[in-house]
Computed example of a mutant assay.
Amino acid sequence: MLDRIESLMDNLRQVSSDIAHDLRTPLTRLQAMLRDASEEEIGEDERRTLIAAADRECEDILRLFAAMLRIGEVQEGRRRPHVAAIRLDSLVEDIVESYAPVFADGSQQLLLEECEPCTIRCDADLFNQLLVNLIENARLHTPEHSVTQVSLRRNAGLIALRVSDNGPGVPAGDRQDVLRRFVRLERSRSAPGHGLGLALVAAIAAFHDAEIVLADAAPGLIVEVNFPAADTPPTF
């Protein structure tokens, strides 16, 4: 029990440090914008531009806290009443169809490789969030002309949702780390975000008793989430 308490305290200290680190830069930018906007000698157009930029910075900070609250909500199991037997194939098809034009705008491809009729017990909104985060993660961290593929299939009593790409991938030693909050690889620091996308995926997977497997696509990354089928007794 003492070891568990010590581990929780270490985790709390790490999260607090990560939050402070992630907020320092946007708050510094926000402070500079507001100071510049308060200068009497600047023109009205420039003042409006600075205020609009400060407003966008505030929205980014609020998105960070919203994502953290969402992770906490899922991890605490507050969504149990929303769990029901859901057909996944139609959800997956709709999400891929809606995101394909976004990929095309960035000279990338999003393809639905295979989509078997599957049913699991899940919170449909959380499943949508999980798949959207995986797709967005692939879009943000792969270059032009890359291809991201999504598949849904049955595999030995499990329902396997797979998102794979042919981008730079994630080194084997970093694959479990990227599922933690605020973790961003060095090459991803110039991309938008706070390192919470895959952490939310991990929280949603745990909520559904699903297992996440990260593997090498040679080149690229494979993220597979294995859900219990609807006829498998859930543990929640």
Results as ranks from 00 to 15, higher is better:
residue 211 E to I: 15
residue 1 M to N: 00
residue 71 I to F: 05
residue 217 A to K: 06
residue 20 A to T: 12
residue 53 A to R: 02
residue 141 H to N: 06
residue 97 E to T: 14
residue 213 V to W: 15
residue 66 A to H: 12
residue 167 G to T: 07
residue 227 F to G: 02
residue 200 L to W: 05
residue 182 F to W: 07
residue 17 S to A: 14
residue 196 L to K: 07
residue 179 L to M: 05
residue 191 A to N: 05
residue 230 A to T: 02
residue 52 A to H: 13
residue 114 E to L: 06
residue 203 A to E: 10
residue 217 A to Q: 09
residue 205 A to C: 13
residue 187 R to E: 07
residue 99 Y to M: 15
residue 67 A to L: 14
residue 83 V to K: 08
residue 139 R to D: 04
residue 120 I to F: 06
residue 56 R to H: 11
residue 62 L to Q: 04
residue 72 G to A: 14
residue 5 I to S: 00
residue 86 I to V: 05
residue 175 R to A: 11
residue 157 G to H: 01
residue 43 G to P: 02
residue 162 R to G: 09
residue 89 D to N: 11
residue 123 D to R: 00
residue 162 R to D: 03
residue 72 G to S: 07
residue 166 N to S: 03
residue 3 D to C: 00
residue 157 G to M: 04
residue 179 L to G: 00
residue 193 G to D: 13
residue 218 A to E: 12
residue 184 R to T: 03
residue 186 E to M: 13
residue 219 P to W: 09
residue 110 L to C: 05
residue 164 S to Q: 14
residue 97 E to F: 15
residue 197 G to Y: 10
residue 167 G to M: 08
residue 96 V to I: 12
residue 204 I to E: 13
residue 70 R to N: 03
residue 65 F to P: 07
residue 3 D to F: 00
residue 120 I to N: 02
residue 101 P to Y: 05
residue 107 S to C: 11
residue 188 S to G: 01
residue 152 L to A: 01
residue 47 R to A: 08
residue 83 V to N: 11
residue 165 D to I: 11
residue 132 V to Y: 04
residue 196 L to S: 09
residue 141 H to T: 02
residue 16 S to V: 07
residue 9 M to G: 04
residue 195 G to T: 04
residue 147 V to Q: 10
residue 109 Q to D: 05
residue 123 D to M: 02
residue 31 Q to T: 12
residue 147 V to R: 07
residue 161 L to G: 03
residue 177 D to Q: 11
